[in-house]
Simulated scan of single mutants.
Amino acid sequence: MQQRKWFTEVEYTELLALCHFLPGPASSQVGMAIGYRQQGVLGSLIAFVGFTLPSVLLMVMAALLLQSSALTETLNGVLHAMKLLAVAVVADAVWGMAKKICITRVKTAITLITAVTMLVVPGLSSQLTVIFLAGLVGAVFLAQSGSSVQPLVEKGSSWLSPVCLVVFAGLLLGLPWLASYSPSLELVDTFYRAGGLVFGGGHVVLPMLQAEPLVQSAISSEQFLTAYSFAQAVPGPMFTIASYLGVAYQGSWMDGLIATAAIFLPGWLIVIATLSLWPKIKSISLLSGAMQGVVAATVGLLVAALYQPVFVSAVLSPSDMAIVLSVWALLCIAKLPVWSVVIAVATFGGVFL
């Protein structure tokens, strides 16, 4: 970015902060924002397609392949090994996020209470409740003065921000009502809500999707964890898990593309809406505190997801646990590249599991 003189280092750091502050897929939103700054709305869409399309195609093809052919013993072994890899990856993600986020007693308490609540009372309503309460607690106990920042876009259409915000909120509130009258919209509603309510992106989308009634009723735990394993293995944003799950829903590649568009749409709307408003948003101390509380709650959601469905669906024996620990050592102690660990684990699973 500095070589192309698109951003200064300070501006790019501020952009990263904004995208981690907002709901949605942070890495994809960074790309959308870069495209928007360079070429407006069309540039943001082109940047999104360029960043996401390879992963989407791989996920859709994987889902179609696994649904159209009976699993061989070798492929079963590969998939089981990939699930064990997912356990190690999520555990590392939980630990890494906890070290960075749970740095005060209030944040640690929010994380622990969220995790306990979701383990005892799982479900979408519980999830939304703890996120809302975490925001309130954060607004009260974590509010602080925001720093002075410069706009990330120098100019833009004055009507675009309010329009995007209205569309974002209107779909978030209106899709559940529309889906109750038109079942064909249930898929869009499910993935739009997941993309619009996830703070932290990446692995945090796992518990949000797993709590959705449509996913629970139409997609088995094994399919869900397989989707997560493939999303971890292929390059690109974790949100492309929607591409696999959409295909798994009814076996249609079109459903995979619809689910993908639905889960990324709220992130695009909210980042375009807030680029020019970021300095004002960050200066509101109560809102800043509320977001810190919500982010702490997402760590708790991930802790609960580490147990169910990730751990209980993958670790079926002491030898499985030994493999998880070995994979974790390769990733976190040996510091091997993720792609090399994926290849090694898949090969091991195909030969020995």
Score class of each variant (00 low, 15 high):
S229A: 15
G202P: 06
S217D: 14
T129I: 14
M61A: 14
S27M: 08
A115D: 04
L187C: 08
S319N: 10
G77L: 01
A70K: 13
A62P: 01
R37D: 00
Q38V: 05
T108K: 14
A70H: 15
M61Q: 13
S125M: 14
C102M: 12
T190H: 05
L245G: 00
T108Y: 08
A262G: 05
P207D: 08
R193P: 06
R4P: 00
Y307P: 07
S55L: 09
L214I: 09
W253E: 10
A134S: 15
K107W: 03
S285P: 08
Q150H: 14
V295L: 14
V60S: 06
I323T: 11
L16F: 07
K335P: 08
A242F: 04
Y192A: 01
A134K: 03
M208G: 10
A242E: 00
P176K: 04
A227S: 07
D255M: 14
C102W: 06
A26N: 11
Q232E: 15
V149H: 11
G201A: 11
I343N: 03
V303P: 03
C332L: 13
A248Q: 12
T52C: 08
Y228A: 12
V345T: 10
P122G: 05
G96P: 05
I281Q: 00
V294Y: 05
L316G: 10
V163T: 12
A47D: 00
W278N: 08
T114K: 04
L45D: 08
V294L: 09
A86W: 02
A233C: 11
V106E: 11
A259Y: 04
Y36R: 00
L79T: 07
V247S: 02
L306K: 00
K282R: 15
V116N: 02
P318N: 05
Q38R: 13
A109H: 09
A93M: 07
N76C: 10
L53D: 11
L197R: 03
V30Y: 06
V106S: 11
L330E: 04
L71N: 09
F348D: 04
G138W: 01
V315H: 02
V345Y: 02
K100N: 13
P279L: 03
S285K: 13
L160M: 14
S288I: 08
L65F: 14
F199G: 01
V56K: 00
P318L: 05
H203F: 12
L336C: 07
L245C: 00
P176A: 00
